[in-house]
Amino acid sequence: MPRGVFRNLALPVLTLLLASAMAACKSAPVAEAPVTTPPAFESGPAAQPAEKVDETAGFREADTSAEPVRESASSLAEKLNAQGVLKRIHFDFDRYELKSDAIRTLGDDAAAMKQYSQFKVRIEGHCDERGTVEYNLALGEKRARAARDYLVSLGTPANRLSIVSFGKERALDSGHNEEAWALNRRAEFSFLTE
């Protein structure tokens, strides 16, 4: 190799020995090569400085020590929710129209909401696992909105009802079959504090 090559590149001093490094290198699967020394990197008088390696935008590891605070519901609202006073409704795949059994259920739910009129109600829209996160978020919103609109049409004050979509993020059944999917395509209702 011509001697000028490294000098032209102004590469720095690094005189190194290979010695047994080849054989010891963990990924070398073969017997040692019959070799004594490696082609040593030549020295150059004007060694260029090494490039500093940096994470330009490495993103920080999140602080996991601070545990999130969960809000607690009033005991009565919690109790009613635990008892399942408000019944969930279900939807067909990729649909947000209310089915006839859902309409019947919503009639019962509206009555219960009237009975416990001191509580606001949150309507959650949910989807099965098929389809993307984003599409299902929008679909879950449509489902929650369809339920809300019908409850309002039954006389439930709109200002008592809030909606939120969880898309496919909160499955009731984590299975990957028709039964699980049917269960997961739903709107759920819960009493809120105050």
């Binding site: 080849m22 990924s27 073969v30 090569a33 019959p34 070799v35 490696p38 082609p39």
Partner: peptide, 16 residues
């Protein structure tokens, strides 16, 4: 493939 490397002299009289 790395197993071919053994067919090559790593130091050919100070040259590659």
């Amino acid at each position: 493939p790395e197993e071919y490397h053994k067919l090559v002299r790593l130091d050919a009289g100070g040259r590659i």
